[in-house]
Design a protein around this nucleic acid. Structure first.
Lengths: 221, 221
DNA sequence: ACCACATTCAAACAATTGTTTCCAACCTTG
DNA sequence: CAAGGTTGGAAACAATTGTTTGAATGTGGT
């Protein structure tokens, strides 16, 4: 579509600024001046600010979905041989590994997670729709595998618990910088992302396997 | 400070719009036109948009902290009599109950949670600082009680787990509308906030009581 | 009735936003 | 070397932003 230089320099700068300050708070002039490209370059190469935002996401999500599908293929093939179901831990492990792999190639996991967090919290209706349309299928596949790994859970319960842990991960990793400062100050330990994933593992597994809630209390009607 | 009408009408409208669309995406003209007040009224009564945002938060957080302190007083008094420690479940229960009580007086829990989520995710440095300064003490008190309820947890581990569950709650409840749509469509059940809290309870307790993570692997250095 | 004050209002302010325009520079192709 | 389409750049565009102004209106006290 275009030279590697200008386009990627815009993307590299945009993703950092978006992650730091959000979409609405980051102007095209912020991006272009820091990237040392002309203001018009964004509209020329991407068409609009919306498209730029989507492009920033694609650069992370495209490799992620590709790798994640491949990893799930591998996992399914392995367990098809011995006929066993894929255990929940292995599914979560695979997802975590894939998430960690992707941003290694580019900026940082922090940016990736922060972007995901923004995609949820910022209104940006077009973004949620875009992500849902483009990348919903891999999530559907994953949840189906989780379903087979946790047959004791009612469907609705599993749905909610998956979003509970999704919230934990995105919230923690996207707010990592602020939390890391506090943790370092209070407990004098330097926290890496891998540390956090290590801490998250048992928590997430326990959360998914928690006892079922009491049945809903019947309101007097 | 002023008539009940204009000021509260601005606050009522602002909190809804902020919750729906975020701070930067909501203009003062959006607020004032929907609230049917003059544009200048915001700057007249609140001084600036920043102050309006803080005022919106105060209206939720002030009653919350008051009630929460009172509830913790009561809880401590009760357990000081029989000399027992406050169990974790009771602490979490108290917090949940207080969170549910506050917005009953006003708009909705959804708005409250969505605002909290925005406070974290939107950059808005001034907001985080404001919340930290004004309401940090009650959180400190709560974490200290949690510490006594979970003596087996290392301090750093407890710190992180508290933020894990904080992420779960804020993320889920602030994105409730979108998730509810999906859940209703897929599982044909109408989800209320109280349902969600009921589902959250065992998950949060299990998360806090999960086994400790493996010690960090030592990198070859 | 009058005054002092608080509040409301319409209008304008300067600043910033995303986007477009038009021209110069460039590189590839004949 | 020349032609032509592609990419870069400075400036201007219209729209929207938060904020301020100054006059009009309302309100309560003496």
């Amino acid at each position: 579509m275009a030279q590697p230089d200008t386009v990627t320099r815009i993307l590299d700068t945009a993703e950092v600024l978006f992650a730091e300050r959000g979409f609405a708070e980051t102007s095209l002039r912020n991006i272009t001046s820091k990237a040392k490209v002309n203001l018009a370059a964004v509209n020329y190469h991407f068409g609009s600010k919306k498209s730029l935002i989507q492009a920033v996401f694609s650069r992370y999500l495209d490799p992620f979905t590709t790798r994640f599908h491949a990893a799930l293929d591998e996992l399914e093939a392995k367990h098809r041989q011995d006929g066993s179901e894929i255990p929940l831990e292995e599914l979560l492990e695979t997802m975590a590994r894939t998430v960690l792999e992707v941003p290694a190639e580019r900026n940082s996991l922090k940016v990736f997670m922060r972007l995901l967090g923004l995609a949820y919290s910022q209104a940006q209706g077009h973004l949620r729709r875009y992500i849902q349309d483009e990348y919903g299928s891999v999530f559907t596949r994953f949840t189906e595998l989780v379903r087979r790994a946790t047959p004791e859970l009612p469907d609705a319960e599993r749905f909610w618990r998956l979003h509970f842990v999704l919230g934990t991960v995105i919230f923690t990793l996207s707010g990592l910088d602020a939390l890391r400062d506090i943790a370092e100050q209070d407990y004098h330990e330097h926290v890496t992302v891998r540390d956090l994933v290590r801490r998250l593992r048992p928590v997430v597994v326990s959360a998914m396997q928690a006892p079922l809630p009491e049945p809903p209390v019947q309101e007097a009607s």
